[in-house]
Design a protein around this nucleic acid. Structure first.
Length: 190
DNA sequence: TATACGATCACCT
DNA sequence: GGTGATCGTATAC
């Protein structure tokens, strides 16, 4: 059980590798004695200060400091005043990069949410909804995901073959000039 | 201190 | 296709 937890060295690699290898892995949330486990089906990469879509493109600030820290930690921020987004810090210390978790699919029950369709289809598309369902908010910002407590990730079964990974442009970053053309969004079609 | 805006979502036409 | 909700953060003053 414990050995299935994804260790820090997994995240301490090029983000474009990590962002694709996380597809099919499991996001696990332990909350008030319950454990929810969901497969990651959609991710996006945000890499370095030169990526104009990355929050670190304006350098170190109190908010982006966690992206410059050790890999394998959670970077969670509030967006539009009402939603949270979950990111996994990647690369080596002092290089700011992260993977945004945009979509999950669950095979066992998740807590009741306001979105009935999401519950019926057993999938959550969108970083905001995903955090709402899994009770993820800024209290878990900077959380160490390699500890295997409260919030962590687990390897997928390597024996199960995954469908081809789709690449596309990232969402909601029209302001990022040429960087918006990068095919840094990765989707698993199940 | 003030202001502009965003790695979203649900609901509208 | 478009818009409003709502607030932390960055930047300007």
């Amino acid at each position: 059980m414990q050995k299935n937890i994804i260790p820090r060295k997994f995240y301490s690699r090029p983000t474009l590798k990590v962002v694709q290898e996380l597809l099919g892995c499991f996001l696990v949330r332990k909350y008030r004695g319950k454990i929810w486990r969901a497969m990651i089906t959609e991710t996006e990469a945000y890499i370095g200060e030169k990526d104009l879509a990355c929050h670190a493109s304006r350098g170190r600030t109190p908010r982006t400091e966690v992206m410059y820290g050790q890999p394998g930690h959670a970077y969670i921020y509030m967006i539009y005043g009402m939603y949270h987004c979950l990111n996994i810090v990647t690369e080596k210390k002092d290089f700011p990069a992260a993977v945004l978790i945009r979509g999950i699919k669950f095979f066992s029950p998740l807590p009741e949410g306001r979105c009935r369709i999401a519950t019926e289809r057993r999938e959550l598309n969108g970083p905001g909804k995903l955090c709402t369902f899994l009770k993820i908010d800024r209290k878990l910002n900077r959380w160490d995901l390699a500890k295997g407590e409260k919030l962590w990730l687990e390897h997928r079964d390597p024996k199960i073959k995954l469908p081809k990974i789709q690449k596309s442009k990232r969402i909601g970053i029209d302001y990022a000039q040429h960087c918006r053309e990068y095919l840094w969004r990765f989707t698993l079609k199940l």
